Amino acid sequence: MIDIEKLTQAELDRADQEHHTPTAGAMISHVVANLWLHQLKIEQATLFVKKCGVSLFLTQAGPEWQAKEADFIHRLNQTLADEGDLVPTTSHQILEYTMLKESLGNKFKPARDQLFDLIQDFDTQLMFITRAIELAQKEHHYAQAALLVELYGWQKAQIRRGQTILGHNVNEGLASAEEDDDED
């Protein structure tokens, strides 16, 4: 007889240990959680942004972003399973692992602010993606590393697209640009 409670507790214990170590699998869980929540935020923005040039961009780019992020979630989860890593499969895990912030009030913000919030989320995700790449390479999880590099490139391109619509320099107002300045 399968002891579901014992298996569940073992997985929770393993997840806790791996998130404190951290491992590539644990860091990819953060990436997956961020992508999942980001899809919701994109949905909110595309539904509630007020009519202007930014809304046209979001109604075109938003569904594309959601589809691409859903694809990355599926592919990342596959690589987690392929390596015997833990796969986040509950909303509780997603909410625990995400580092993105959501708010019901975002839908009332001006369109430019809603788009910039999504761009900042792409930027926040890069921090987890780069750390996951390093860990995957260190652990010889090359398929995970390759997929994460692909995700990194795609997100950088989306940051540029969004910043262009806003008339910003590609790194304007982003945390990663501030971190780069701190290193000088």
Results as ranks from 00 to 15, higher is better:
Asn77Lys: 15
Leu148Gln: 02
Leu115Glu: 03
Asp85Asn: 11
Gln60Met: 07
Asn77Cys: 15
Leu126Ala: 02
Glu96Gly: 07
Asp117Arg: 03
Gln125Leu: 09
Thr90Lys: 02
Asp113Glu: 15
Pro110Phe: 14
Pro63Ser: 06
Ala143Cys: 06
His141Cys: 04
Gly105Arg: 05
Ala132Trp: 00
Lys109Ile: 03
Gly153Cys: 12
Pro110Tyr: 11
Arg75His: 05
Ile73Pro: 08
Glu83Ser: 13
Arg75Ile: 01
Phe72Ser: 01
Ala136Gln: 05
Phe108Val: 06
Leu86Ile: 11
Thr79Glu: 14
Met99Trp: 09
Leu147Ser: 04
Val149Ser: 06
Glu96Lys: 03
Thr79Tyr: 08
Gln60Asp: 05
Leu86Asn: 03
Ala136Lys: 07
Phe122Tyr: 12
Asn106Met: 10
Val149Ile: 10
Ala145Phe: 02
Ala67Gln: 14
Phe72Arg: 00
Ala111Asp: 04
Leu104Asn: 11
Asp117Glu: 14
Met99Leu: 12
Tyr152Gly: 02
Ile94Val: 15
Tyr152Met: 13
Gln93Ser: 03
Leu151Ile: 12
Glu69Leu: 11
Ala70Trp: 06
Ile133Phe: 09
Leu118Asn: 05
Phe122Lys: 05
Ile133Tyr: 07
Ala81Met: 14
Gly84Glu: 09
Thr130Phe: 10
Phe116Leu: 09
Tyr152Gln: 13
Pro110Glu: 15
Lys138Glu: 14
Lys68Ser: 11
Glu139Lys: 09
Arg131Glu: 14
Phe108Asp: 09
Leu135Lys: 06
Ala81Glu: 10
Ile133Thr: 05
Leu80Phe: 08
Ile119Arg: 00
Leu76Cys: 04
His74Thr: 05
Phe72Trp: 04
Leu148Lys: 00
Gly153Pro: 01
Thr98Glu: 04
His140Lys: 11
Ala67Tyr: 07
Ile119Tyr: 02
Lys101His: 14
Tyr152Ser: 09
Lys101Ser: 15
Phe116Glu: 08
Leu95Thr: 07
Val87Gly: 03
Lys109Ser: 09
Glu102Ser: 13
Phe108Ser: 08
His92Asp: 15
Phe108Met: 05
Pro88Asn: 13
Asp82Cys: 00
Lys101Glu: 15
Glu150Asn: 06
Gln93Leu: 05
Thr89Ile: 13
Gln60Leu: 07
His92Ser: 08
Phe122His: 09
Asp85His: 01
Lys68Cys: 07
Leu58Ile: 02
Leu126Lys: 00
Glu139Phe: 06
Leu118Ile: 15
Met99Lys: 13
Arg131Asn: 12
Ala61Lys: 01
Glu83Ile: 02
Thr79Asp: 08
Glu139Asn: 11
Asp71Phe: 04
Met99Glu: 13
Ser91Asp: 05
Leu126Val: 02
Leu135Pro: 03
Ala132Val: 05
Phe116Thr: 00
Asp123Thr: 12
Leu118Met: 12
Asn106Ile: 13
Gly153Trp: 12
Ala61Pro: 02
Tyr97His: 09
Ile129Val: 11
Ala143Met: 10
Gln78Phe: 08
Ile73Lys: 07
Arg131Met: 10
Ile94Ala: 07
Phe116Asn: 13
Ala146His: 04
Asp121Cys: 04
Glu134Gly: 12
Ala145Asn: 04
Leu95Gln: 10
Thr89Arg: 08
Thr130Gln: 13
Ser91His: 07
Asp82His: 03
Ser91Phe: 12
Ala81Pro: 00
Tyr97Ser: 11
Val87Ala: 01
Ile73Glu: 08
Glu150Ile: 01
Ala67Cys: 07
Pro63Asn: 08
Phe116Val: 02
Glu83Lys: 06
Asn77Met: 14
Lys107Met: 10
Asp71Gln: 13
Ala61Gly: 03
